[in-house]
Amino acid sequence: MNQQTFSSLKIPSKHRYCHGGILRRSSKGRGARPLSHKDPIHLLFKVNKIAVKGGLRSLRSFSLMNRVLKRYSAKFYVKVEQFSVQMDHVHMLVRGSRRSNLQSFMRVLAGQFAQTLTDTHSLKHEGPKVWKYRPFSRVIKGFRPYQTVRNYIQLNELEALGRPYSKTRLRGLSQEQLVELWE
């Protein structure tokens, strides 16, 4: 049996290394999830606001996300380089040793967080779904995109802590502003 290559898929180059999230609604995000054990991966989990009262930054949800993240990143040998928990979504920059470990990490992290949050370990959850979309993932190719994603996640974390939001957040930041971002 031949192994399927990503280059054989008819995916526009803009979305070649992306999968999930709102892309699932179109044919662009319905192929195999591109994952890499060499390159970092930007993950985004978007929560349904109705299902999570108080948002993900509430004390219970925030500590729960941290515990689940630490536990399963160690179990599946996934290095979480950076993460930011917002009110309705979570950004992560991760690296994994194997594709199967990354797949299991994403599946178990989402499932365990949702089950623990809704206290439905043995019963079926009757309320609204916890996750709004499937996790969005993007393989980061190259150093400049890697730096951009790191700065973006850092900026999101600072905005969650009270920094004012701006539409032109990462466009045109000077070197001094980038240094200030990481202080």
Rank of each mutant, 00 (worst) to 15 (best):
M1G: 13
L9T: 09
K10W: 01
K10M: 10
I11H: 01
I11R: 11
S13W: 07
K14H: 04
C18Y: 07
H19K: 12
G21L: 12
R24I: 10
S26T: 15
K28V: 15
G31N: 03
G31C: 05
L35R: 05
H37M: 08
H37W: 07
P40G: 07
I41W: 00
H42Y: 15
H42E: 09
L43R: 07
L44R: 13
L44W: 07
K49D: 12
K53W: 00
G54W: 03
L59N: 09
S61A: 15
S61E: 13
F62G: 00
R67A: 08
V68F: 02
L69H: 12
S73N: 12
A74H: 13
K79T: 15
E81Q: 15
E81G: 14
E81P: 08
F83P: 03
F83H: 13
V85S: 08
Q86M: 15
D88N: 15
R95F: 03
R98P: 00
R98F: 12
R99F: 07
N101G: 04
N101C: 07
Q103G: 11
Q103R: 14
F105R: 01
A110Q: 01
A114D: 00
Q115A: 14
D119T: 13
E126S: 14
Y133L: 04
Y133S: 05
Y133I: 02
P135E: 12
P135S: 14
F136Y: 15
F143Q: 14
N151I: 00
L158C: 06
L158Y: 02
P164M: 08
K167I: 02
T168C: 04
T168Q: 11
S174C: 06
L181N: 05
